[in-house]
């Protein structure tokens, strides 16, 4: 398998400079590889402090890892030439969380679409540029005559986010990194954005890394999932297995805390202790201080990933009888989905 984008044993530490003795390990020995042969959708799920935002920035080359490498098509991002970087910036696009902040309030929304067209020389004439822009807007279910020429505050959050997806499509990327793309969008408008992303994957063979704290939408859109806790992988694998039958105590806690929109009361589990506010330099498993199943070995050394099934891995000593999966091969636990055979409902406007 040739990899498109991968993180190899990436660690990111903040602080620890001359005058700052407090260090925070945002991400520790994290590895993930996205295959280039087949477009996939991978979800990375975590709460605040899990390192998911740091991971997004590292994968985009907006920050450099303290240790380890982020490679695109085999080349380390930090060592790329200008041309290689340009290719990377075309092939890997991002959708940010805040659909308002990403727009310069001084300009109309056309600005975010025309800028990449001119900077990456995607069109030779004005007419061709307009045609390209209208094409991508229609692809995400927006009507160009209702969208272009408006200022950001004149569009809804959902529309603004869809314009961002359209912008991502302009450059014909191979991978889109979506960082909480729907968390600031109204519930009834989320479906159209998620549907658009799914359609990108199916119709245009674009791989997607979907970073979120919301397990429900992650389940809806992805095939494989990685659950992060405090900078390390807690559990990963086929999203059906991980979400329906969680094995890591943290994943179980996460899923049981999700409020379900139904008359049944699902919040029945016992209260869990708050995480210790200062837990730097903690040896052993990072979840041990809150884990109802913690045992002394948990406090001594962090557990490796145990492969409890062909398509899942759990970093927990409860499963130490299973074979160990080296961190660098995390993606081996991923499921390879069958190519879509039935109709996928596209974005419903």
């Amino acid at each position: 398998m040739t990899t498109l984008l991968e993180a190899r044993d990436v660690t990111k530490v903040f602080g620890g400079g001359l005058l700052d003795r407090n260090t925070t390990v945002a991400l520790e020995d994290f590895s993930l590889a996205i295959d280039s042969d087949r477009p996939s959708i991978t979800a990375v799920v975590g709460e605040s402090g899990s390192g998911k935002t740091t991971l997004a920035r590292l994968l985009l080359g907006l920050a450099a890892p303290t240790r380890g490498e982020v490679r695109y098509l085999g080349r380390d991002l930090q060592k790329m030439t200008q041309t290689e970087m340009r290719t990377f910036r075309r092939d890997v696009q991002v959708i940010f969380q805040d659909p308002y902040e990403v727009y310069n309030p001084f300009y109309r929304v056309d600005h975010v679409l025309t800028t990449p067209v001119s900077k990456f020389k995607l069109a030779t004439s004005r007419a061709e540029a307009n045609r390209l822009i209208e094409e991508v807007l229609k692809a995400v279910g927006l009507r160009p005559e209702e969208t272009l020429g408006r200022f950001p505050h004149q569009l809804s959050g959902g529309q603004r986010q869809r314009v961002m997806v359209a912008r991502a499509l302009l450059l014909r990327p191979r991978l889109i990194l979506a960082d909480e793309p729907v968390s600031m969008v109204d519930a009834s408008l989320r479906a159209s954005i998620l549907g658009a992303l799914r359609a990108m994957n199916v119709e245009r063979s674009i791989s997607i890394i979907y970073i979120t704290h919301d397990l429900a939408t992650a389940y809806q859109i992805s095939e494989n999932i990685v659950v992060l806790y405090r900078g390390s992988v807690a559990e990963a694998g086929d999203v059906e297995l991980v979400v329906k039958h969680p094995q890591h105590p943290y994943t179980q806690l996460l899923i049981s805390s999700i409020p379900v929109a139904s008359a049944e009361r699902t919040w029945t589990t016992a209260e869990v202790a708050d995480p210790a506010i200062q837990a730097a330099g903690q040896a052993g498993c990072k979840f041990a201080d809150r884990c109802p199943s913690a045992t002394p070995p948990c406090l001594r050394k962090p557990p490796p990933l145990f492969r409890t099934a062909p398509h899942r891995a759990v970093a927990c000593y409860l499963y130490q009888n299973a074979p160990v999966l080296p961190g660098e091969e995390l993606e081996a636990a991923f499921v390879t989905p069958a190519p879509p055979t039935q109709e996928i409902s596209g974005p419903s406007q």
Binding site: S188, A216, Y219, V260, I344, S345, S348, Q349
Partner: peptide
Amino acid sequence: SLPSFAQKGVFRGIPG
């Protein structure tokens, strides 16, 4: 339109 764990891959929003 709420995403559930019961059904996967169906995206139903409210148009308009």
